[in-house]
Design a protein around this nucleic acid. Structure first.
Length: 678
DNA sequence: CTGACTCGTGTTTTT
DNA sequence: CACGAGTCAG
């Protein structure tokens, strides 16, 4: 038998070959974290651990798939049995929570077809209760549904009291503590009636399962080893789940980097990784600091940027590489110039032989790329965007999925109300009653045949009842065929309700063909809630896979990835840090880590662009008295000293309504001169 | 009770 | 400026 792990460095090897006492791996950016985790799992399998007794928790489904794929390759290369990889319990906390709920749900009162609500579904359900309790009317400015759910979620995930959450994070809602308490209690009841769980419940029920003496024991006994990736982005509830899963820390491995903790808005706390060793006595800590990703020039900058944070585990990443090329800071006049500059560089690198796929543009918020997207389309440069608004969030897609959910679970109140209010003449009140009737009649849609609705609505309502009943009885029909029938019913409604019908219909057809990927209806609905197709690439499927395209991504969605060339755009103060996150040191620190994550994605070339003038005044960074946006505060003097700095010469005259004397004359002079350039 | 209308507010990141 | 909440006429 050949060795499993021939070329690990000493720290990696220590982590891989560690025994079963608790282990925390502090892995700096690009230090081979995934590789270490993969080899550790391979090592465990080699030591005779049964694959289904390994639980591998990752941050995204994509990371999980990638990890299992690499594990297979590793085992295969070492001549080991590799098909067992598929038997490992791998996935996000939420996906594993769902899976456990499918196994133990009956004992908790869940039927197999229970619904997983995504964020906006949960908001809608909460809003139903909010209206039912008369909250919008009885008080001035009662918090909105989104805010209410955010409060609820913060309480659940951070394990703090409602009072503490209100005082610390939502001070403007402090007066509504009693009403909110009642609202949340009603929300919990409603979810139970609807056989629905939201994201938080997936963790909460898992936690509760472990709290029960008998069931908890059964869950604990399932696993010998629990490994957690991206531990710096777990929240307190998730940490408690781990503690109850492995009370002594035996068999527990967590991997992460406190410097890359960027999800505190989801209640993630960097304390989990910082305090791990205290929570589990006998913990071994391994630090990975040798970087295999970036050039030394990039590392010098990133080390500097993160060293200025107010707290964190000190790390100095180093590389054995020898090239010293500095990262480049580019001052641009405005967003258009930034886009222009960027496209020029992208094409230049493409000429040098770097695929578009090896280049990525990163930004703080999703809309930061809109001008660039327009420009790329205009110039026929293909791109794929990660993060931001998803296909699944489009109203017509949600509509059609709601039909499908109604076939799956007749008690799904949110889906039901959404579908029923589509019918002309049926509004919120009637749809509530119609759904209540179904609930009372054991999920039989034929109660709608003798219901009270305006005559023309009644006709369509009966057709709908028949269709739903037929699809429920015909279990073996492929999901795509079910969707096709539902779409036939939906299309006239869509045409009445929305304009620009054609692109919408085309998207629904896409949805239908996408359905082929899922084994059954339950799988499709659940995965759409838990892990929706995230990018245009995911949507298009195989035909596009061998094409070349530029990557556009929010920094959050870029986590864990790397590219040869990285462009970080909109690096102006107000964007990074976002001016909504500068209220305290903790927030600013997190924005700094976000910037750090963006910079550390780069292998060979790193560009940071800062446009200085923003024309849309309702958003964008705060301007100083001269109307100029400042460079991000995270590039201090010592950081700037590690960069090459350039200013783009304006390629076009400036807008007459935004005069800027100095640059004006400069650009005209430039034009006059350029006559003689060639 | 529904659907068309007006008024005012707040605005990121995602499982 | 876009969306949600509240108002009013059928």
């Amino acid at each position: 038998m050949s060795s499993l792990s021939p070329d690990l460095n000493p720290s990696q090897r220590a982590a891989v070959e560690h025994g079963d006492s608790p282990l925390v791996v502090i892995a700096g950016a690009g230090t081979g974290k995934t590789r270490t985790l993969v080899h550790r799992v391979a090592h465990l399998l080699d030591g005779g651990i049964v694959p289904e007794r390994i639980l591998l928790l990752t941050f995204t489904r994509r990371a999980s798939a990638e990890m299992l794929r690499r594990l297979e390759t590793t085992l295969q290369q070492a001549g080991r049995e590799f098909s067992q990889t598929r038997r490992i319990w791998g996935g996000t906390f939420h996906a594993i929570g769902t899976r456990l709920l499918r196994v133990y749900g009956r004992m908790l009162g869940f039927e197999p077809g229970f619904t997983v609500l995504d964020r906006s579904d949960a908001e809608d359900l909460l809003d139903l209760v909010r209206t039912e309790q008369g909250l919008p009317k009885s008080h001035k400015r009662f918090p909105r549904k989104g805010t209410c759910l955010a409060i609820y979620s913060a309480v659940v995930n951070s394990r703090r009291s409602l009072h503490a959450v209100l005082v610390e994070d939502f001070p403007w809602c402090r007066d509504f503590e009693d009403e909110l308490k009642k609202l949340f209690s009603g929300f919990v009841d409603r979810k139970e009636d609807a056989q629905a769980v939201d994201y938080d419940d997936l963790l909460l029920f898992w936690h509760a399962l472990l709290e029960d003496e008998e069931l908890g024991q059964r869950v604990r006994e399932r696993f010998d080893c629990v490994l957690v990736d991206e531990y710096q982005d777990t929240n307190r509830l998730q940490a408690e789940i781990l503690q109850r899963l492995a009370p002594t820390g035996k068999g527990l491995t967590v991997v992460g980097d406190d410097a890359q903790s960027i999800y505190s808005f989801r209640a993630a706390t960097v304390r989990n990784i910082l305090d791990f060793a205290e929570t589990f006595p006998g913990t071994t800590t391994v630090k990975l600091e040798e970087n295999y990703r970036s050039s030394p020039g990039i590392l010098q900058l990133t080390n500097q940027v993160i060293s200025e944070a107010s707290e964190g585990i000190a790390k100095v990443l180093w590389s054995a590489r020898s090239d010293e090329k500095k990262p480049r800071l580019v001052h641009c006049e405005d967003e258009e110039e930034q886009a222009q500059y960027l496209i020029d560089r992208v094409l230049e690198h493409r000429e040098q032989g770097l695929l578009l796929k090896e280049q990525a543009v990163l930004f703080r918020t999703s809309h930061h790329s809109s001008l660039l997207e327009t420009e790329l389309s205009r110039r026929n440069i293909p791109f794929v965007k990660y993060g931001g608004l998803k296909f699944i969030e489009a109203a017509h897609v949600k509509d059609l999925i709601a039909f499908l959910r109604l076939v799956e679970n007749p008690r799904d109140l949110v889906a039901g109300c959404r579908v029923l209010t589509l019918l002309p003449g049926i509004g919120p009140q009637r749809s509530r009653r119609l759904m209540d009737a179904v609930l009372r009649h054991a999920g039989q849609y034929d109660v709608w045949n003798r219901s009270v609705a305006p005559a023309d609505a009644q006709q369509r309502l009966q057709e709908l009842a028949q269709l739903l009943t037929r699809l429920r009885q015909n279990e073996d029909l492929p999901v795509s065929a079910q969707l096709s029938q539902l779409r036939t019913f939906y299309q006239p409604l869509l045409e009445e309700k929305y304009d620009k019908v054609e692109p919408r219909v085309r998207e629904l057809e896409q949805l239908e063909s996408l359905a082929g990927r899922y084994t059954d209806r339950t799988a499709m609905i659940t995965e759409f809630a838990l892990d929706p197709p995230a990018s245009s690439e995911d949507l298009a499927g195989e035909p596009h896979l061998d094409e070349d395209y530029l990557i556009l991504s929010t920094i959050h969605s870029a986590k864990g990835l790397e590219w040869k060339v990285v462009y970080t755009i909109h690096a102006a103060d107000g964007n990074i840090p976002s001016d909504m996150s500068t209220k305290n040191v903790a927030q600013i620190d997190e924005e700094r880590r976000l910037f750090y994550v963006a910079l550390t994605r780069a292998k060979d070339w790193l560009y940071v662009c800062c446009p200085h003038r923003y024309y849309h005044h309702h958003r964008g960074p705060k301007m100083d008295q001269h109307g100029y946006a400042q460079l991000t505060r995270f590039l201090s003097q010592p950081a700037l000293a590690k960069m090459e700095i350039s200013t783009v010469q304006p390629a076009h005259p400036h807008r007459p309504d935004q005069p800027h004397a100095g640059q004006w004359s400069q650009s005209i002079r430039q034009r006059v001169k350029s006559m003689w350039d060639d």
